[in-house]
Structures are given as C-alpha cells and as structure tokens.
Computed example of a mutant assay.
Amino acid sequence: MKVGFMGGTFDPIHYGHLLAAESAREACGLDEVWFVPAGHPPLKENGPEADGESRLEMVYRAIDFQPHFRAMDLELEREGTSYTIDTIKALHELYPGRTFSIIIGTDRVNDLPQWHEIEALAGMVSFIGVTRAGETFRPEQLPKYITDKLTLVDMPLLDISSTIIKERIAAGRSIRFLLPEKVHSFIRRNGLYEPE
C-alpha cells in the first residue's frame, strides 16, 4: 500500500491542506493520505496556538467521510520534539509493507536539508512537493539524495494559510469557506484563535 504522509501543525487545517493531499494522492497513485498533527515541530519558532487535542479534532472533522484520508495521533502522543524520522520509523514498525511518501509544499522542500537526519529519512521515504501560489522553488540548491526521491505535483492555486485564517479571526472577519464547515463550527464553538 502506498501512503502519503502529511505532517504539520494543522493550526487550523484548511482547504489548502486538503487540496494538496488530494492532488498528491491522485497524481502519485497513493492509496491513502495520513494526516499527522505535529506535537512540537522543530523548525517553527513558536509552537501551535491550539492544543494538540483540538488540532487533531479539527483534522478528524475536516476529513470526515473522505475514504482515502486518515488522521493519526502518533506525534501528539510522543514527548519532546516531533522529528519526522522518528514518526516514519514508528509507522514502518506499526504498518510493515507500506511505502511512505512525505507530502510537503514546495516552500518546505527548500528546507529539507535542515530536517533532522535528512539523509537517513530520504533512504526511508520519497517526497512529493506540491506547488502552491507565490512560492519559489530552487531544486538546483538541493542535494541529489533529495532530488532523486522528489516528485513535483501541481495543484490548483488556492491562497489560503493557517496564518491568514488566524489573522482574520483576530480582526473579527469571516473565515467561512476557507476551511470545512465542521472545522469552522469547532473553532467558533471553542473560541480558538480569538484575541485575549
């Protein structure tokens, strides 16, 4: 079984994440895409604003009734920094026989050389770089062990980010139609991302 691994804070998850996952699934013939909210991501200066339980719940609500999408709490259950290589090792042990491809935006592909134990990780997975609006991708600056395992996938331009959603909430503006209605309802009901 070919599985796409989609990590990130999902703070909150939105249509851009879902469209990237579906674009990668379709283009690369993935059987499933697994969404794995990060506990403590190493390359983000500030941690997630919403707690892990809320972020996982939003992922569940966003992918509800999508037969090819699953949510996993692996990183939220683990203490310390969420290194992707540790998660991939755990997934290989828990689900032998599956091949994993890490789905990331092309903005994050440029950061791959900074990832923890990236050479070892590249030996265990492939990478699917999803192009998004306004991003610059520089494959010539990446080492060969990454480009040899990298597939680029286009997705329709959809300029939505978790940051934009949180800024709109802080400004008292609508976030409807930027993310699934069940996620929108959860955010509103729980007062997430509202200024204190």
Rank of each mutant, 00 (worst) to 15 (best):
G105I: 05
Y145F: 09
D148M: 12
Q141W: 14
S126W: 02
K149A: 03
V130R: 05
P143L: 06
T106W: 04
Q141M: 14
S126M: 08
L112C: 15
L112M: 09
P113Q: 08
D148A: 15
G134D: 08
S101Q: 07
L150V: 00
M124R: 07
E140Y: 14
I104L: 15
F100Q: 01
F100H: 02
F137T: 08
E135I: 14
Q114D: 13
Q114P: 11
L142E: 06
T99C: 15
V109R: 02
P143Y: 06
R132E: 12
V153N: 00
L121N: 02
V153T: 04
I102A: 04
P113S: 06
I103G: 01
E140L: 15
T136A: 14
S101R: 10
S126Q: 12
L142F: 08
P113M: 09
N110G: 14
I104W: 03
E135P: 12
T106P: 02
Q141L: 12
E119F: 12
E117R: 11
P113L: 09
M124C: 13
R98K: 06
L142I: 09
G123Q: 04
S101H: 05
M124F: 09
R98V: 13
G134Y: 09
K149N: 06
G134W: 10
A120C: 14
V153Q: 02
Q141P: 13
F100Y: 06
V153K: 01
G129I: 03
P139F: 09
D107C: 09
V109M: 05
D107Y: 08
D111T: 12
L112Q: 04
S101K: 04
D148N: 15
T131V: 06
L112W: 11
T131N: 12
V125K: 00
G134F: 08
T131Y: 08
A133D: 15
T131K: 07
D107T: 13
Q141A: 13
